[in-house]
Design a protein around this nucleic acid. Sequence first.
DNA 1: CACTGATGCGCG
DNA 2: AAAGCGCGCATCAGTG
Length: 549
Amino acid sequence: MFRVVRRLPSNDVEWTDFDRVTPTARLTAQRSGRIEAGDVADEIGRVEAETRPRWVWDDTPRWYPRLLGAGVRVSRIVDLRLVHALLRSSSATEGSALHGAARGPWDTAQAATDDASALFELVPESLPDPVAEFLAQREAIEASPARAGLELLVAAESTGALVAVEMRRRGIPWSPIVHDAVLTELLGPRPGPGERPAHMRDDLDEIRVALGDPDVNPDSPVELRKALNRAGIPVTSTSKWQLSEHEHPVIEPLLRYKKRQRLLVANGWSWLDAWIRDGRFRPDYVPGGVVTGRWATSGGGALQLPKAVRRAVVADPGWKLVVADAAQLEPRILSGLARDAAMAKAGEGDLYEGIVRSGAVADRPQAKVAMLGAMYGATRGESGRLVPRLARAFPRAMAYVDAAAAVGEGGGVVSTLLGRSSPRPGAGVAPDVMPPEMPRADGDGASRAWGRFTRNFVVQGTAAEWALCWMAALRRRLYDTWGERGEAAPHLVLFLHDELVVHSPADVADLVAEQVRLAAVEAGELLFGPSPVRFPLTVAVVDDYGQAK
DNA sequence: CACTGATGCGCG
DNA sequence: AAAGCGCGCATCAGTG
């Protein structure tokens, strides 16, 4: 049963139930009712406990923080805003009213608020009708030839929205003491305002001596490049990889300085002051924030935590972190997409070792660089040279990504396994690439760049779908097994594309690790059914995130 | 002063 | 200055 909820201007909530009588029957409204503003959380909690409907609402950040604050967790929802975005652009909904609909209120990002106290006090703007939108979405899904995939995708995307709010509510356990110790070790003690940390002052002295320039400011790329050129180092940019190609006394201290400057600026003491409260880091996750379906974050850079500061993610006393990483996820996804039996066989154990054993390449590093080259569309360098050898060993996999690239080069749309479609070139939300021009002979025009994007889209996007299913399956398993423990139950605290971290009471951490593995098996079956492709994990039960891997 | 784009680097 | 995808963020550099 679906229960569509809608907040009225009075802040009362109106609900309407839709039952699915048979898989093919049109949904019809069965019952409806109204909840007074003050009873919303209690009533939703009561209905959830009794019938566990699939709640349908406009935008999860507008509903769920307040519910969680009142102790109400829900199992299943449809997030109309996220699903609208999926269905509107999906090739699998062609012919439906939703497909290619004009941009409207469902396409404009809602004012995301996590301020639970303000949520229901907001004067609702003239919100679009959630019942009409829900019916349009159901119609698009049920008429689609790719219905099964869309149903799964819609459920996974929506559950991701729940997890994002839940993770932000719990926060990542963070030790400011350890973080400060890391910074002090790498940079020196916390400096006064406007001062450089001690180790960076030492680096700077060395840089200035080596360049014979007592005033050079390495924070200014333009100034630095000129100073380097004056010292006889012919760099055209100040990027670290170009610097490291030259022999000169300035290079080593300069690279050290840049590394430290990066840490200071991105995750230094001011980051600590801004983002850590009461021993928790609460980033603002943005499900579906990336065109491929990956999550993004806004503020805090939670998906780019440097390895060096991960030691500061410390489990509470009596708790552990269960850190799980899907090994070589994207190439495994490709072997599933392409139904490449030879590649699936190579992936029975470590995929890259398997590729070596197949005879395609000489060693594991070569296997890795060749595989990445195949998925990203490398044409030059070592990677580009190795790709053809991979293509001989795994022709089906290679044909799959080559076909996706060809579609993109021709200005077409590609889709993931479950039905998320790539943007049309030049659609605006697209990556920073110009739309393809007429195919040209110069070998690397904009159309080639777009082809590399669509080549990668099918793999990255399907990997994101696997990861959402993995996370959703784990969420359900954690709740089913330990849900009655309430706040003391193991809970997800981080989701990093192909990696999950669960904060767990120590006594059940090993059982959590087992559930993480079972959830990965479940995700593989959801996407690929009976298939030889495997999705092995590396799982570590640790006290701090720095100990994992 | 505010704004925008480029640069460089952290992550997957 | 990447070769080869997807991001966020701080800072600099240039413009209005």
